[in-house]
Simulated assay, not measured.
Amino acid sequence: MNIISIKNVALGLAFSATVFGAKAQNVITEGQASYSIAVGGQTANATTYFKGDTSSLAFQRGPAQIKMVGTKGGEFFAVFLDVPVASMKKVAIGTPAEIDEAQANEPQYAFTKTEETKKIGDFNCKKYVAKDTRDGSTYDLWITTDVTIPANMITKFYSSLGGTPVLFTFLQNGNVKGAQVVTLTAVTATKVPANMFKVTADYEKMTLTDMQNMGKGRQ
Rank of each mutant, 00 (worst) to 15 (best):
G163Y: 00
I66D: 12
N175S: 15
A14S: 11
M206A: 04
M206P: 01
G21N: 12
A104V: 04
A24Y: 09
G94V: 07
E116K: 12
V199T: 13
T209Q: 12
A33Q: 00
Y139M: 09
D146E: 01
T188F: 02
Y109D: 06
K23P: 01
D135E: 03
A38Q: 14
G21C: 10
G178I: 03
Y35I: 12
G40C: 11
V79S: 13
A194G: 02
V27L: 08
N2P: 02
T18W: 06
S87D: 15
Q65L: 10
L184M: 00
A64E: 10
S56H: 06
L171I: 09
Q180S: 14
M206I: 01
N2R: 07
Q219C: 07
T148S: 12
V91Q: 11
S55H: 05
T43N: 10
A58I: 07
A14F: 10
A151R: 03
K118N: 07
L11Y: 08
A201N: 06
M214P: 02
R134A: 05
K51H: 10
F157H: 15
Q25D: 06
A14I: 15
S137A: 07
I120L: 15
T144D: 01
S87K: 11
D135H: 05
K118A: 11
N152D: 14
K23F: 07
V19A: 15
G41A: 14
I120F: 13
I3D: 08
Q60W: 08
P107G: 12
T185R: 02
T164F: 02
V147C: 01
M206E: 03
I154H: 09
T209D: 12
L208Q: 01
M1S: 14
K72Y: 09
L81A: 14
A189S: 04
D82I: 06
K67F: 05
A97L: 08
V166L: 11
T47C: 04
M88S: 13
V187T: 00
M1A: 09
T155K: 00
A38S: 15
T117D: 01
L141A: 05
F20C: 15
E30I: 00
A102F: 08
D53S: 11
A201C: 01
L13E: 03
T155G: 00
L208P: 00
S16A: 15
I149F: 04
Q212K: 13
I6T: 09
A86D: 14
A17E: 04
V129C: 02
S34H: 09
D202H: 05
Y139S: 13
L57S: 06
Y109N: 09
E75A: 13
T207F: 00
N152E: 04
S87Y: 13
G163I: 06
V182A: 01
